[in-house]
């Protein structure tokens, strides 16, 4: 299993103070934004700031993603030219509607990687779908490039496109979330949920995180460091779950030693999906145990 993406913290690409400190709060990923949080007048300045930050700052083990402007906008091409050369871990494509958009981005990055002597495929892609068309095309988008590590849903534009608005229980997103999840799982990549914008409504936020975790999402985009702990708490397995998972892994090891084919634990048969689930539980638990603010760059 690859790296965890429980939390992806949005950071406006025109705010030096926030860019400088983005990694200290312990989110799994940070996403430096050049798109919707940047006004048209500041697009150039933000692009240069993010480029220089990527070149200069040390974000430790935190995954660094940059959300660029779409290639169909006047800023997209310049964003790719600058950002890909600064080698972030990944680039997030906004408002993706067709697989061709992903392929175009892939080719552009391939070109830049070649020009700048980077190994092919180093820079990953995340595609965000934010419209009815994007959601309908989710699987084709999710399988459009080898660079793709995740597909995300962007709710604000989506509900507008659907002629509705966001509600507390999120019924208006149910079909789209389901579609995006199915696409991600079928393509073998991560499924990332949308932001929750009322940072003072901790209760509502917790409810939503529990919902998307139960649905099967890998994580959520967040807009404030105060949301990180809540997501990580929800994604942290209970002691009971951890105990059971450890027993399963132990039984597997025992069975392998004895050369047994069929394994049972406490009277129940253990099959492959159960082992996989147990593995993920333990992985999430390990991540939570070392979930200190300065995760990753800890002093030995």
């Amino acid at each position: 299993m690859g790296r965890l993406r429980r939390t992806m913290l949005y950071v406006p690409g025109n705010n030096p103070g926030m860019i400088r400190d983005a990694h200290i709060y312990g989110s799994d990923s940070i996403m430096l934004d050049l798109e919707d949080s940047i006004s048209i007048k500041e697009k150039d300045a933000a692009r240069m700031l993010v480029y220089q930050s990527l070149k200069t700052l040390d974000y430790g083990n935190t995954e660094v993603i940059v959300r660029v402007n779409g290639l169909n906008s006047p800023f997209g091409r310049d964003d790719f030219e600058a950002i890909a050369r600064a080698k972030p871990d990944g680039i997030r494509l906004p408002k993706t509607e067709t697989p061709e958009e992903v392929q175009e981005a892939d080719e552009l990055i391939t070109q830049i990687e070649r020009q700048s002597g980077l190994e092919q495929g180093t820079i990953k892609l995340i595609a965000a779908v934010e419209s009815a068309l994007g959601v309908i095309n989710a699987f084709r988008i999710a399988t459009a490039s080898k660079r793709l590590i995740g597909i995300a849903i962007g709710a604000e534009d989506f509900v507008t496109d659907m002629r509705t608005s966001r509600s507390a229980d999120g019924i208006e997103l149910l079909a789209a979330r389901g579609q995006v999840l199915l696409a991600a799982r079928a393509a073998g990549i991560d499924a990332l949920d949308t932001v929750f914008s009322d940072i003072n409504d901790e209760e509502g936020f917790t409810r939503e995180v529990k919902l998307i975790k139960q649905m099967g999402f890998d994580g959520k985009s967040i807009i404030n460091p105060r949301q990180i702990d809540i997501v990580h708490r929800v994604f942290t397995p209970t002691n009971e779950e951890v105990g059971k998972a450890s027993r399963i892994m132990e039984a597997i090891r025992e069975a392998e030693k004895k050369g047994l084919g069929v394994i049972s634990l406490e009277g129940k048969m253990i099959d492959k999906p159960i082992v996989e689930r147990a593995g993920r539980v333990l992985e999430l638990y390990d991540a939570a145990a070392k979930n200190y603010a300065l995760r990753g760059d800890r002093h030995a």
Binding site: D21, I24, Y25, N224, P225, R226, A293
Partner: peptide, 9 residues
């Protein structure tokens, strides 16, 4: 958030 992070630590 930074003050809170420091306080927690």
């Amino acid at each position: 958030p930074k003050d809170l992070l420091i306080a927690k630590c």
